[in-house]
């Protein structure tokens, strides 16, 4: 693959927070993402929707470096994430480079993935203390502030097994925010929740959108929620962006046949 076509760093006048450039992801012969090009501006909230198997979650997992990519380059804040410079060209990043770059990204998972042997507070303090090198007192102050933000401060000394799904997810959001990421990823964070607690998680995300200048990328099946809070919706179909645009346009007046089919199928299911 010719890497000379990819800049070592994006120019200052064309520097989105996230850029997928010709990104390919395949498992053997199965191509999950085919030449993906996607920019996300600083502070933008982008939601990815689409049928299952369309590669939505893979987009987030690649950005979190949970998956390696098979082609193209991902840039974060202008700098390559998946690659690093060596002798003037980009080569696949080593673990050290990935660790450095990964510090800008936070992620919340469908199944929360809180550490079960730690309390809510300890879950939030773990990264700041072990990775960022904050003192226990600083990390505690920061974590308590975030647990207050997500409405979980009164449960800070509980272990995850004592919390409901919605409560666990709110702690997980606080844990991710405690690392002060520039980009937050939400991977179907309400899919594993009982219907009556979905609101407590979506309200936290609404608050983040309203009060913080975070860049966010979200995969969700909550179409109403996506429509409310997103700046842009990307409809994925078979590993490509079939259609994208502001929520009002994409939901109100979809242009592509696939998009119309998907939206009407989802509407019926609601």
């Amino acid at each position: 693959m010719d890497m000379s076509a990819y800049p070592l760093e994006l120019p200052a006048d064309d520097r989105p927070m996230v850029r997928f450039m010709n990104v390919v992801k395949s498992y053997g012969r199965l191509v999950v993402l085919d030449q993906l090009n996607l920019d996300i501006a600083e502070g933008e909230m982008v939601t990815v929707i689409g049928p299952s198997g369309s590669g939505k979650t893979t987009v987030l997992r690649m950005l979190m470096t949970l998956e390696t990519i098979n082609g193209g380059v991902i840039y974060i804040d202008g700098k390559p994430l998946t690659h690093m410079e060596r002798n003037g060209v980009l080569v696949p990043a080593d673990e050290r480079h990935i660790r450095k770059m990964r510090a800008s990204i936070g992620m919340c998972f469908q199944h929360f993935n809180l550490f079960p042997h730690m309390t809510a507070l300890q879950n939030c303090m773990e990264g700041p203390v072990q990775v960022l090198g904050l003192s226990k007192a600083e990390a505690r102050a920061r974590s308590e502030e975030l647990l207050t933000l997500v409405g979980m401060i009164d449960k800070k000394d509980q272990h995850p097994s004592r919390l409901s799904g919605g409560q666990q997810q709110r702690v997980a959001i606080a844990r991710a925010l405690a690392m002060r990421p520039k980009v937050m990823l939400f991977d179907e964070v309400t899919s594993a929740l009982d219907p009556e607690v979905i609101g407590e998680v979506t309200n936290v995300i609404r608050k983040l959108v309203a009060e913080h200048n975070l860049t966010m990328l979200m995969v969700t099946h909550q179409m109403g929620f996506a429509r409310d809070i997103s700046d842009r919706i990307c409809f994925f179909y078979r590993g490509k962006i079939e259609e994208q645009g502001p929520p009002a346009a994409l939901f109100g007046n979809p242009q592509k046949e696939r998009t119309k089919q998907f939206l009407s199928a989802v509407k019926e299911a609601d």
Binding site: M64, L66, I105, F109, H111, E126, V131
Partner: peptide, 13 residues
Amino acid sequence: RGQWEACRAINLS
């Protein structure tokens, strides 16, 4: 597996 992924997400060594 989610535990390993959570560790990567908060960038633990």
